[in-house]
Design a protein around this nucleic acid. Structure first.
Lengths: 192, 192, 192, 192
DNA sequence: AATGAATGAGTGTTCATTCAT
DNA sequence: GATGAATGAACACTCATTCAT
């Protein structure tokens, strides 16, 4: 296993700072301090703070997308696919809580940034991939008819909500203990 | 109808700025400019920026709580109560989109602020009120057994998720068009 | 004994603040808080902060001058007069340490203020009174000849220096324990 | 002779401002203006205003200590040593009147600052050096017995007092003209 | 690829003072 | 004489970014 590159060290340090004091309160100096890189090096690799944020965001969503992709390769059937969307998400959040917290709270900022279009494109592909996986079942009438925006929110909304609360330390339950329940609720909510 | 007080004018101006450029990018000067108040007056009324943010947050949650309270006075039955939680929320969001966006994205910041405890206390009372309204039905076994954190998220999660997307302009559907569907999904997800 | 007037209450409060945090760090609000007066009342009585400082300064020097005057009425002889200058000063400092500290550190500021001339006039009279008391002995050749500025500093310099250090908490000795020694040194230093 | 460093330029500019308008009335902007440095550079070198003040103070006392040290290398005997304390001080004040004025009026502020301990340590060493130089004579009984705080004040008090007055423009005499007289008075005041 | 001293526009906040009541 | 809400100029300080080495 290769040692982390300077770029990765900077991203890890940034995430740690974002977790501790928030994205806006994190200064370039803090990241420099934590990563061991020099200011010049950080600007050489990323150009500006906004691009550090975007790089961290995009890397996170890519990692989750990859996990989901691996899941799709292993399951089949409408129910399994819907449940996979929930369980993959929970598994990723539990494995990467800081990263998940960062992503959950900074979508708007990255969308508004100079790299917003890149994020939107990644999201489009992500959704396209999911709908491609579900298209067959939909045509078979296995899902309750509803607007596509609702469909997404009904599946993943409870999980997003609980994940946010869990990551903020506002829950008594462990997120992972609700894994099967949330998956079942998602399936029940969309099945025809 | 009374004319808005100086305090309210400041709060309204702050919300408009937060909506346009975000909370962190909003400067005291912008709020001053928009509200017509002097800097001194703003500090006389609120003390600092953080307290302006917190005051706006707390006023918003109080308003929603009041709307919900009025709803509880009018409905009865487990199904009606669960659906009310969803429809009241949607109604408030649709009626106050800027305020809703602000609240949806700044809970953590207010919790971490000097007024965090006040917010947590308000939240405790809010949840206590809801559970009190539902306690009878729960005892009758009308709800599927699940952890309390899940129960909340299953009911309101899809609505929160869709509201976030709608407020960010990421949906094709109108939030209000999903009102009955989301209410029904909520009820179906928790009924025994 | 009359109760302190509102003006005196303000001056006492100001001195307490000056002692605790320094003159520059003391705000009008602090004095208001401590005195119980309103802001308006303070400005009614004094006009501005500078005049509060000057009033406190002038009241202090007047009080010391009065003490000295009473001393002159009781003693006679060159040695007694010189020693009186030292002992009166020490007695006043020990009785009014906060006031003394304030006066010792704010002469320049009051001199530079709008009331500077008033202070200089008071000082002129103070020195004139002292030299009048000593004029006879000087003519009798009882003092070592030296410039008048030196004469003053030689008499009171050691006492000023020790008083400053004592008031700042930098001495092991108590100021009062050095009373006789300093008086004797003063006399030895100026006697012919 | 090397050209002054950026740090020294800032310090010199600060001293000039302190002399003209006083420490509290001097703004960072004034020092920036006068030194030619950028605000960022000033904060890069010193961190904050308080540390500029302290650096100037400590540099001044160090310079005087060095002058005194050179004097000790050249003289011997109790009388010469005592007189050296006075004459070195006067020589330094006359050569550096602005610096001297600054030091004479800002000891308390630096002691109360974050660098107070550093100043106290420097003072401890300064006094230790002096008492080491005099220890032998003291043991020989060449000095009048008195508390150590008095001993210092008796020697240097008249000089401090006159220097303050001279630096404030309140004297008719020139400080330097009183050099020998003050040295003699100091010696007379402490000799056994 | 790496460094870090230098930059300066921009920020939140303070506080002496005014004035209508 | 007394009040205190309102004012706004002025301040110390921050921090993303640049650039010569």
């Amino acid at each position: 296993m290769a040692r982390p590159s300077r770029k990765d060290e900077i991203l890890q340090a940034a995430l740690a700072c974002f977790t501790e004091v928030g994205v806006d309160a994190t200064t370039i100096e803090m990241i420099r301090d934590r990563s061991g890189a020099s200011i010049g090096s950080m600007y050489h690799h990323f150009g500006n703070k906004e691009r550090i944020i975007a790089a961290l965001y995009l890397a996170g969503t890519a990692q989750y997308a990859e996990l989901l992709e691996r899941g799709f390769a292993e399951v089949s059937g409408a129910e399994a696919c819907i449940k996979l969307l929930v369980t993959s998400y929970i598994d990723w959040v539990v494995a990467n809580p800081d990263w998940a917290r960062f992503i959950l709270h900074n979508r708007g900022r990255v969308e508004a940034s100079e790299l917003g279009e890149q994020l939107r494109e990644a999201n489009r592909q992500h959704y396209a991939r999911i709908f491609q996986a579900l298209a067959g079942y939909r045509e078979q009438g296995l899902f309750k008819p509803m607007p596509v925006d609702c469909f997404s929110s009904v599946i993943i909304g409870p999980t997003h909500d609980l994940a946010r609360n869990w990551l903020a330390g506002r829950t008594r339950s462990e997120l992972v203990d609700c894994r099967e329940l949330l998956a079942q609720v998602a399936w029940d909510s969309v099945r025809a």
